[in-house]
């Protein structure tokens, strides 16, 4: 059974000049933690705004929990929780006041659904009289999640919840999402961070309004197996230039200190070593590696250009 169903959604801005979503279709299963992974401007926020009834698509249809996003918008608003990418709670109200306000707006009380937010709320409770505008980034995130959860939503939409949050808080945040998933809440989350993809049940790689690939992380990587090598040498700048000039090489990208080089399938690592030696490089290190989601995304991106 699917909780979110998107069919051929199209959305343009500026009177059709800017294409934000181009014929997007996918489904999210009940109780799934679904990730939308893509760079800024890929169309993730537009998709969220359509699914949370804030935006009407130009074409196509979408359903959330069996309800049409255009026709049944009031019913959808009762059952979804939305955390926009930009912190949008009242900065001049305290933690407690924000939470109470959103609870009452959904015709419920904090006490009634406290079990849902308890784990998160205890972390910010010591500051409950502090104004939301004066909280740190991580605390704002936690408060926003509490407010999105307070009416016990069936589906939770989180738009880049971890952008601008420190690595420890990011990890904590994903742990919280795991626990919410265990309670049966369907979660759709977007992120520009590829490393967070591994925390999702299934992911959709999205770019320029199109879904490039949709599956579990392992499946996507397996489907796009590459003959990939990590290469390093003493003179890294020349190394990069030499690799890029070589027309045999499919792609070469800087990855931290190393270059990730994709070779055509039948090539061996000896080819790279010989090529670099010939170019006069010293301290050459070449090792075969398994592609990560980032490598796969770059490959898909190049293929779709």
């Amino acid at each position: 059974m699917s909780t979110v169903r998107v069919e051929n959604i199209k959305k343009t801005y500026e009177k059709g000049q800017v294409l934000a979503l181009d014929d997007v279709s996918f489904e999210v299963k009940s109780g799934e933690l679904f990730g939308l992974i893509g760079p800024d401007g890929a169309g993730k926020t537009s998709l969220f705004r359509i699914l949370t009834t804030l935006l009407v698509p130009d074409a196509g249809r979408a359903e959330v929990a069996g309800l049409d996003v255009v026709k049944d918008l009031w019913k959808i608003r009762q059952i979804v929780g939305y955390m926009p990418g930009k912190f949008s709670l009242y900065q001049d109200l305290s933690i407690e006041e924000n939470l109470n306000f959103f609870a009452t707006v959904f015709n419920t009380t904090v006490a009634k659904n406290y079990h849902l937010i308890e784990e998160i709320y205890v972390q910010i409770e010591p500051f409950k009289h502090r104004l939301a505008g004066k909280l740190s980034g991580g605390m704002k995130q936690k408060l926003a999640l509490c407010c999105a959860l307070i009416h016990e939503p069936k589906v939770l939409f989180l738009d880049e919840p971890t952008t601008g949050v420190d690595p420890v808080s990011r990890k904590e945040f994903w742990d919280m999402l795991d626990r919410l998933k265990a309670r049966g809440i369907t979660i759709v989350v977007s992120t520009p961070y590829m490393d967070e993809a591994s925390r999702c049940d299934r992911i959709a790689l999205i770019q320029k309004g199109k879904i490039l690939e949709l599956d579990t992380l392992e499946q996507i990587i397996a489907r796009h197996a590459q003959n990939l090598y990590a290469v390093d040498a003493d003179n890294r700048y020349n190394l990069m230039n030499d690799l890029r000039k070589n027309t045999e090489i499919v792609s070469a990208f800087a990855f931290g200190e190393e270059q990730h080089v994709t070779l055509p399938p039948h090539f061996q690592d000896e080819y790279l070593s010989a090529f670099l030696k010939e170019k006069g490089h010293t301290g050459i290190k070449v090792r075969k590696i398994a592609p990560t989601i980032e490598d796969t995304f770059i490959k898909l991106m190049l293929e779709n250009q």
Partner: peptide, 13 residues
């Protein structure tokens, strides 16, 4: 401007 209207708009208000 602050974006709070966005959060209000997804509520049943």
């Amino acid at each position: 401007e602050v974006g709070t209207i966005e959060q209000i708009n997804v509520t049943p208000l």
